[in-house]
Design a binder for these strands. Sequence first.
DNA 1: ACTTCATTTAGATGATTAGCTAAACGTCGA
DNA 2: TCGACGTTTAGCTAATCATCTAAATGAAGT
Lengths: 110, 110
Amino acid sequence: MTGVFKALSDPTRRHVLELLRRGPMTAGELADHFPVSKPTMSAHFAALREADLIFAKKDGKQVVYSLKLSVLEDALMGFAQAFGLGGKTQDAPAETPPEPPSDAKEALPE
Amino acid sequence: MTGVFKALSDPTRRHVLELLRRGPMTAGELADHFPVSKPTMSAHFAALREADLIFAKKDGKQVVYSLKLSVLEDALMGFAQAFGLGGKTQDAPAETPPEPPSDAKEALPE
DNA sequence: ACTTCATTTAGATGATTAGCTAAACGTCGA
DNA sequence: TCGACGTTTAGCTAATCATCTAAATGAAGT
């Protein structure tokens, strides 16, 4: 979860995801959209790969990246729903906020 | 937008938001839930304030923090909807992805 | 085999981040 | 005004991050 949000915290990476929404693209095509060096883009791709938000497939000389929409959805929607956001599966209009999990000096998930 | 995702990229800060979901809490109460120093917590509060995700109200000796749910919703849902996620306002099942805004060396929002 | 094109790795730098302790600040109540 | 309490600021450290240039890798094409 932290990995996803960290990946999303960079504008360049968010933009890459948006480009990928239209379909798979090669690393070079993607890089052409940004005023940074290829190695820098490669690092951004790596961050997105590590967050499992994209996946890479080698095709001859090129590397084709594709969006993993389901992972994005799980992270975003999962978190949103914990707050009763997101339209669908909201568990309560939150006037009486959902069962407070007993906590004190609790462990951090992740 | 970047600010929100950056704020969300830290587990401690996400946890603070979740605690705040149940209602306003003082900085001290919140801090009691985490094994870090008060100054460190204060920095986390500042990050959340800067992202406009919480708001602070002084009440005598204490500072009471409240969640700004609407800001969280706008950021999360706004981004999700750009991908056709989120149940409600999806604009297309995305077989033919939405109008690609003509771009090349485009400016990064934020 | 050599060249060329696409991408990644190596290695460096400056900025930012999360964490700490210790000190300062601000607001109450006595 | 003083002391106590809760919070923030100062100043530090170690780690991570975004970026660069230069070089290495890998796969075609000739």
